[in-house]
Amino acid sequence: MIVIEQLSKIFKTNHQEFKAVDNMSLKIEKGEIFGVIGYSGAGKSTFIRLINRLEEPTSGTVEIEGQNVTGLSKHDLRIKRQEIGMIFQHFNLLWSRTVEENIAFPLEIAGVSKGESAKRVQELIDLVGLTGKEKNYPSQLSGGQKQRVGIARALANNPKVLLCDEATSALDPETTDAILGLLVDINEKLGLTIILITHEMHVIQKICHNVAVMESGRIVEQGSVLDVFSYPKMPVTKKFVEQVMGKPDDELTDDLLLEHISDGHILKLQFVKETANQAIISEVAKKYEVDVNIIQGNIKQTQEGAYGSLYVQMTGELTAVEDALQFIRSTSVDVEVISHG
């Protein structure tokens, strides 16, 4: 577990003080993927650097697995850092080294023997899917491949924590998905705690379990990804949710629905953390003498299941419709009848 208490970082320029991180407190469970989202300038980059003390905190503490990182001497901090992997937006590979030499670098730093290092490097290359690229230089790799090297390098010393500093922000959407998939993969395989910062909500939606929203150096909202998605409270959070769900205005209003569709029942199905009933539409149509017509929907997949809503029109004998409604209500999908035809 990572416990962050009253962490602050104040930058002093000539006459002004700037609170980049302002009294942040957080608990991050072992093995979870924790996302911090905020716009640029919110302080998230400073925050993640405070965890491994690339920036020295002005006040507050960071505790990783019971060890107070903020109290460590320079020497002990160096040793501790070998247990904290980090990947970067611009990969930060050494261009003068090949893929395998880059991955071997943290092992050299940790004083691992040549033979053991070579074995470990090969394992990591296979893990991140770069087999065959061992002798290539970074300049010969694509962005996604460079980040794979970055990930392999960060994992070399079997860290307990992986810090991701905008790790996918320089990648195209397809590559982003592949890298996020790899992160989930290593999170599950190795039980690694991942802390990532980003300004892209779909990154949070796709792989995070919990999320904190940062604004002006403070956490303004936090909770499980689904809770934050379902019930965003702060304006900044709502904006981020809109990034992936679209604006609420984009959904049809009830009046509009009624205007265009006059027969049958119009239902709004609400999915929250749905894993069991994703095929509910076809199930209803098979079981009952009703026709189901999808009008509009917006469903997103998160780490904890599907989330979103679906508008459908249901036509058929009244008793059949009633039975179908009864059935839907018996599942974990919420249903709201917007109009009866």
Binding site: N52, L54, L77, R78, I79, K80, R81, Q82, I84, M86, F88, H90, N92, L93, L94, W95, S96, R97, F105, P106, E108, I109, A110, R153, N157, L163
Partner: peptide, 29 residues
């Protein structure tokens, strides 16, 4: 030499001598 690379080496727990000889001098060769 890219500042990010030096930061990455620090994050790996590199000593100053490692940063000087294996990062700074090597990358600027």
């Amino acid at each position: 030499v890219d500042h990010g690379v030096i930061e990455a080496a620090k994050a790996m727990g590199a000593k100053s001598s490692t940063i000087i000889f294996k990062v700074l001098l090597k990358e600027s060769l």
